[in-house]
Amino acid sequence: MSDRRDDRQPLSPDDEAFVRSVADSYAAPPMTAARRTRFDARLEERIRDGVVRRRRWFAGVAVAAVALSLLVWRAGVDAPDGGEVGRVAGSEPALDESESIAEEWILAMTTASLPETDEALPPDYLAISDLLLGD
């Protein structure tokens, strides 16, 4: 966040004091040196595991692709599309993305009845909000 120019609407002294008391009473416990060290160590471990997992996944896909190519070749059957097998082996790792899609799908199904939390602004308010609040 390089641009620190403050574009917030100035608050009244009352509001300013209120916001300060909310901020003071609702603040996370400070990060101690020990907590930082544990956080970093865990992050490092997760990155290392992720790289290894990703490589294993790549290796698995590559082995499967080679095996499939051999099968097709031995059966004397031309692959329907010569580029298809190569494309699978060389594709971007979709592991995280597919996990995310699956998770999103589960969430969407299970939270269908969840009341909409992002309140839409009424059209009349939207129309005049720029005049009232500026942009």
Partner: peptide, 16 residues
Amino acid sequence: AGTIKSHLHRALGKLR
């Protein structure tokens, strides 16, 4: 940004 400002305005009112 205008939406953020109106959200701020409303949030402050509700919290107060």
